[in-house]
């Protein structure tokens, strides 16, 4: 039995009196793709931000390969809902900057590696463009390349398609799926239920800061044994039903 690459122990986060995360435990094995779902305000994004170290935790700990993580130590990479690309740099420069400044790579080597990362997300031709000259889907793929290039042990996706027009989500989801197929360990927060169902090795359902259920998708989606999961998924099923009628 291999050791978990990421382990979250009794993780708590409080802001004032509000408990955002309550004693979350989660072990993620190398190569796993964990889908994180739950109603809005359930703490999905907070969980990711705490794992990344962007939000302070009130209790518990996050370990990657047995070490506590810190933002910028390279253990965890994060892809944000709003891409957070740097608007003054081209796509290639966005990817190469941290390679040069943090990894201390020479400019030429960093540019080469940036090109490779961009090629991996299907943007080999657009490295010279600035974010404003790219579509939302392309921007998000650049953001993924920027994170990938730093070769984090665990990749976090925080609603990576929520800010995109529906027709642009597919290109981003395809990239994530390819990464998962290549064995990248990842946690994905998303409302794209079909995508989560097909992508994930396990799905975590969060509600009010608590893990209500964590199970393989077939089990969680098909059985819907847990009433809260059922009522949450019902709203998605309703939407699909509407679409079929229309």
């Amino acid at each position: 039995m291999t050791a978990p690459i990421l382990s979250v122990r009794a993780l708590e986060r409080r802001v004032g009196d509000v408990e955002i995360l309550r004693r979350i435990d989660l072990d993620v094995m190398p190569g796993e793709a964990i889908g994180v779902i739950g109603p809005s305000g359930s703490g999905k994004s907070s969980l990711l931000r705490c794992i990344a170290g962007l939000d302070a935790v009130s209790g518990g700990e996050v370990m990657v390969e047995g070490r506590r993580t810190q933002p910028g130590d390279g253990a965890v990479g994060m892809v944000f809902q709003h891409f957070n690309l740097w608007p003054h740099l081209t796509a290639r420069e966005n990817v190469a900057l941290a390679l040069r400044l943090v990894r201390k790579m020479p400019a030429a080597a960093a540019a080469e590696k940036a090109e490779a990362a961009l090629a991996r997300v299907g943007l080999a031709a657009l490295g010279g463009r600035k974010p404003a000259a790219l579509s939302g889907g392309q921007q998000q793929r650049v953001a993924i390349a920027r994170t990938l290039a730093m070769e984090p042990r665990v990749l976090l996706f925080d609603e990576p398609t929520a800010a995109l027009d529906p027709e642009l989500t597919t290109e981003v989801l395809d990239v994530i799926r390819d990464l998962a197929a290549a064995g990248t360990t990842m946690l994905v927060v998303s409302h794209e239920m079909g995508f989560i169902a097909r992508l994930s090795t396990r799905v975590v359902f969060l509600d009010h800061g608590v893990v209500v259920q964590a199970a393989p998708p077939a089990e969680l989606f098909a059985a819907q044994a847990e009433p809260r999961v059922r009522s949450f998924l019902q709203t998605y099923l309703d939407r699909v039903a509407w679409a079929r009628d229309a």
Partner: peptide, 8 residues
């Protein structure tokens, strides 16, 4: 935040 996570 992105800069911080990437280690700048």
């Amino acid at each position: 935040e992105a800069a911080r996570l990437l280690g700048l």
